[in-house]
Design a protein around this nucleic acid. Structure first.
Lengths: 335, 335
DNA sequence: TTGAAAGCGATACCAA
DNA sequence: TTGGTATCGCTTTCAA
């Protein structure tokens, strides 16, 4: 059986209170006793029960992270960043994939609460902000990553998606593209809507319009994206450039183009969003809008942990700047 | 403050024991009481404390998963599979990235123990099998994914790496390649060594040899792999084909080839391993050995949970078959 | 069908 | 410096 604090105390001939002090480096214990007790803990391979400690109100040193899909490289890279920073600071992370379903978000939120995580980071879309109110009521610290809930006063770390969309549009305009199309994510993904908005604004300011039939939606799955793009390109008056709201979709676009024997970028320029590892390995390599993924993760963790230490901070809103990474999937408009 | 079982009991005018029975659907409680208590729990937004329950010996319904790097798509896809299956079965998963360092593995192992996870899955390399003995002693169920510890009698789910290597070699031989090279992972990654072994065996059986200078090692990082391949290709008598022990390395190889103006597959055939999303998006798309990632994850979870239910099973060893996926990065040997 | 009470393994306050 | 003990929230006999 596992050794408990009682075993250690008995073995050392002291009380459990003393052992507890040694474990936590509190109180005044004589050097001799301390060494003695440490030695016994070592010998019995004693691991204090985090469960029991948590029950008495101690922190669990665990954070929760909700993402839609950990197998999407963007979220995997984000998770990695969150995990790295957390570990540096002595916390561990429970990662949950929600598939962008409110029902699952709710289940995981409950689960994490029951497990008494010290804080949560939410990087998944939520349709109904209401499911977050229990968290607020019980004042469990949390932060949103790359999502916005304007109705709630919570910490937020995000990329300036609108600017990202604008950068994409400007890049295409600079290359002379005026007949452009967009592959966006479903309306529930607010970041995607912002990207679309920024894109459209720049386009319109330049005197062009983005007709509704030039916009398609798909999830962030390769095949869904590919199918959507096939439809999009089936139209008369094909666009000369396509803005996709994430790299996976952009890859779906590359594959669709290939299937239609459309050469990228010669006949169709494609620009993505995220700048995950995917963007650097495609053929042609993907021009894309880069998100500061590592920073997003790091700041979210920092914000959360800061809040843990000093009670209720005013909600902060960090907006990080995206930037354009030009590779080989975009070029001058034909003609 | 959060409601506890006492609040519910008081409100309902019953004892906490009764409430506990209702929560767990045990014992015989009158329909009326049950409904009453349920209603109160609902109203007070009561969430039983998983922490307190765990302390009394109940399961935590949490599993641990150790991988070297969650931002590597192979492990991200594996984690996704593990998570999906676990959720189906009512468990949640704590994912930890170890960076292939024993020291971190040990830390996480302790952490997971302290958190009293019900079982662990280890998909990370371990140099010193000794750090697993505490787990065995305390009979915490665990399973190895895609790793082998022949010295330990533990559940193992893995791909037949040797066969995978053999398939790769056979494919290259079939295409007429005899001057081949290998990019493997460091010796501590046993799966990689097995792939190399299988590859070499087939090659030698066909009467060819794999000279030491034709083998390079690198980690599973893009840049490291690229650098290693640049060295490898710098030799006189360049190989006509290259087998890489994972897709990321293969991509590093594609990039190195590009830098050297070597056309793939015309002048250099490249074959990878894993068949992650990466393989389908590169240029050219990557011929690779596919691992049944989803099955690996699923079986590992099933094995573990089976063990949780029925005490100590004999250690099982599931070896799943890899297969060849031919895309466009390999072709007939020149000449 | 329900309740009283003894743990589970730690923490922390108050005495000694 | 140390120890006694109440406490955290829940599960689980054993009685009633």
């Amino acid at each position: 059986m596992k050794a408990t604090i009682y075993d250690i105390a008995r073995e050392a001939g002291v009380s459990i209170a003393t052992v507890s002090q040694v474990i936590n480096g509190k109180g005044k214990i004589s050097e001799k006793r301390r060494a003695e007790i440490m030695e016994i803990m070592e010998r019995l391979n004693y691991q204090p029960s985090a469960i029991a400690a948590a029950l008495t109100g101690k922190q669990t040193y665990t954070l929760g992270l909700l993402v839609p899909d950990i197998s999407n490289p963007y979220f995997a890279e984000l998770a990695r960043a969150v995990e790295d920073r957390s570990r540096q600071l002595g916390y561990s992370v429970v990662i949950c994939s929600t598939d962008n379903k409110d029902e699952r978000v709710e289940r995981y939120l409950n689960l994490l609460q029951q497990k008494k995580v010290d804080g949560m980071m939410i990087g998944t879309g939520i349709r109904n902000a209401g499911i977050l109110t229990p968290l607020l009521q019980q004042s469990i610290p949390f932060a949103l990553i790359a999502r916005h809930m304007p109705s709630l006063a919570v910490h937020t770390v995000a990329t300036d998606d609108r600017l990202g969309g604008a950068l994409a549009a400007q890049h295409l305009l600079d290359l002379g593209h005026t007949r452009v199309a967009v592959l966006s994510e479903p309306a529930r993904v607010s970041s995607s809507q912002e990207r679309l908005r920024g894109f459209r604004e720049v386009l319109e300011k330049a005197g062009y319009t983005l007709a509704p039939e030039r916009i398609r939606e798909s999830t962030a799955e390769l095949n869904a994206a590919k199918a959507a793009v096939l439809e999009l390109l089936g139209q008369s008056a094909q666009p000369t450039a396509l803005f996709c709201c994430n790299d996976i979709q952009a890859i779906g676009a590359l594959q669709a183009a290939k299937e239609l024997n459309l050469r990228v970028p010669k006949e169709l320029s494609v620009i993505g969003f995220d700048n995950t590892i995917l963007a650097s390995v495609t053929s042609p390599p993907l021009t894309t809008i880069a998100q500061p993924i590592e920073e997003l993760g790091r700041h979210a963790v920092d914000l959360l942990i800061e809040e843990l230490k000093q009670e209720r901070q005013p909600a902060r809103n960090m907006i990080l700047k995206p930037w354009l990474v030009v590779r080989e999937s975009t070029t001058k408009a034909p003609g």
